Computed example of a mutant assay.
Amino acid sequence: MRVLFMCTANSCRSILSEAMFNHIAPESFVAVSAGSFPKGQVSPRSLTTLTRAGISIEGLSSKGNDAFESNPPDIVITVCDKAAGEACPVYFGPALKAHWGLKDPSEVPGDEATVDAAFDATLAQIEKRCRAFLELPIATLARDELKRELDRIGKL
């Protein structure tokens, strides 16, 4: 199963989600990420947060939706508030879509410790949701049941 985590800039929340999902998921799952308006670079604080958590940052990059045109995902999960109202591109066709809104930790004001805490809290929230997703009996769920479960997880 191929899961696309999508955000506007693809520099923070979608990158954290891709890395966390791949860190804990079995080999039959793979996560990728993209942005509707990619920044072109991953937030350095995202990379630092992942490294501090012992999660690989190898291969992470900020890219647009077109990177997946020839190999569309099975599931598209938007992870930022701005992307929630955007329509998923047509080429995603039958991909199941869900929204797991997360506040942008890079917009948290404060000193280094405060911003680090915001990134750590965001990563912990992503881990909680990814683990809940991976615990689902996906093989036995009908498409509408899976959609309902993904939407429920987005509210955790």
Rank of each mutant, 00 (worst) to 15 (best):
R2K: 15
R2M: 13
V3D: 02
L4T: 04
T8Y: 10
A9Y: 07
N10G: 07
S11A: 14
R13A: 04
I15L: 12
L16F: 05
S17V: 13
A19D: 09
A19W: 13
H23F: 09
H23R: 12
I24M: 13
I24W: 04
A25E: 15
S28V: 09
V30L: 15
A31D: 06
A31L: 07
S33V: 12
S33D: 09
S33H: 11
A34W: 08
S36G: 02
F37S: 15
P38F: 12
K39M: 14
K39D: 06
G40A: 09
G40Y: 12
S43N: 14
S43E: 15
S46Y: 04
S46M: 02
S46R: 02
T48Y: 05
T48W: 06
L50E: 01
L50S: 01
T51S: 12
T51W: 02
T51V: 05
R52N: 05
R52H: 06
S56M: 14
I57M: 04
E58G: 13
G59F: 04
S61P: 07
K63Y: 11
K63S: 08
G64C: 01
N65F: 09
N65K: 06
A67P: 06
A67N: 04
A67K: 05
E69C: 15
E69W: 11
N71Q: 12
N71F: 08
P72C: 11
P72W: 07
D74P: 08
V76L: 15
I77E: 03
V79F: 04
V79Y: 00
V79N: 08
K82N: 14
G85W: 10
E86V: 11
V90W: 00
F92W: 09
G93V: 10
G93Q: 14
A95K: 01
L96Q: 06
K97S: 00
K97N: 01
K97D: 00
H99I: 02
W100S: 08
W100K: 06
W100V: 10
L102V: 03
L102R: 03
L102E: 00
L102S: 00
P105A: 06
E107M: 07
P109D: 14
P109S: 08
P109E: 15
P109F: 09
G110Q: 07
D111P: 08
D111S: 09
E112C: 01
A113N: 14
A113P: 05
V115P: 07
V115R: 14
V115L: 12
D116P: 03
A117W: 02
F119N: 01
D120K: 04
T122N: 13
L123I: 13
L123V: 12
L123F: 09
Q125K: 11
Q125I: 13
K128F: 08
F133G: 00
L136E: 01
L136F: 02
P137T: 01
I138V: 05
A139H: 04
A139F: 06
T140D: 08
L141C: 02
L141H: 07
R143A: 00
R143M: 00
L146I: 11
R148T: 06
E149F: 00
L150I: 01
L150A: 05
D151L: 05
K155Q: 13
K155F: 10
L156Q: 14
L156A: 13
